[in-house]
Nucleic acid binder design. Sequence first.
DNA 1: CCCATAGTTCGGGATCTCGGAACTTACGGA
DNA 2: TCCGTAAGTTCCGAGATCCCGAACTATGGG
Lengths: 115, 115
Amino acid sequence: MRPLFHPAIEDVAPQAILHALSDPARAAIFARITQAGCVNACSAVSALGDRVIPKSSLSSHIKVLREAGLIRCERNGVEMRNHSRCAEVEARFPGLLAAILNAYAGSDAPGAGTP
Amino acid sequence: MRPLFHPAIEDVAPQAILHALSDPARAAIFARITQAGCVNACSAVSALGDRVIPKSSLSSHIKVLREAGLIRCERNGVEMRNHSRCAEVEARFPGLLAAILNAYAGSDAPGAGTP
DNA sequence: CCCATAGTTCGGGATCTCGGAACTTACGGA
DNA sequence: TCCGTAAGTTCCGAGATCCCGAACTATGGG
């Protein structure tokens, strides 16, 4: 399978980023991918907090994040590697991702659940 | 008509803000309300760039922005005054609104069209 | 009292989203 | 080599959401 479609950084639209991150599940996935050193397997993400996300939903979420320009995906054998494109997005929209992730972290820590 | 429902600032969720601003039309409305000194009539907003927004859609957009905690609305006779709550939101989520509005302004200036 | 203006609500069609089941791909073991 | 297992994707139906025109409500003026 050839590289999937990834938008060029200059084609990334703010509304796509906001839409992608307006879902707490997607925001949590993105936060985890970003925090985990920009590499992560898709299934390693499926256990977010205490919520189990079905495979198909997870695949959709990953697709939304990818097409929004937030992550870059490539196959590695059976698994999928998801790199965060935070550096590119940061260069194009300074402070945006930091503010969004910080807002989520400050409100209810999407990547860690709230026991 | 009693004051409409407005969430307390501590009840404002990041996902609601991102969802509200993930629509370019809503982002443009909010940008205009914020830039116009935090006061504006609803109908004065309807002429955004070259796009005509139907009244019902505009009312919905305003409602979404209000319930997301981004603006405060109150009647003034026949008209509606829309104040931006940017200061409150800024205090709760530092840098968020600035980064979002800046992202839109840097990509295609939602409040001014791109001739 | 009647009308004009500003905004809200309602209704239907289009679009989006979620998630289960089936399918595809890739690797590993016998 | 052939089969089994694991990881993701695709397909499809049910439900939710969004958009916008038409009808409705509320306020103020003549």
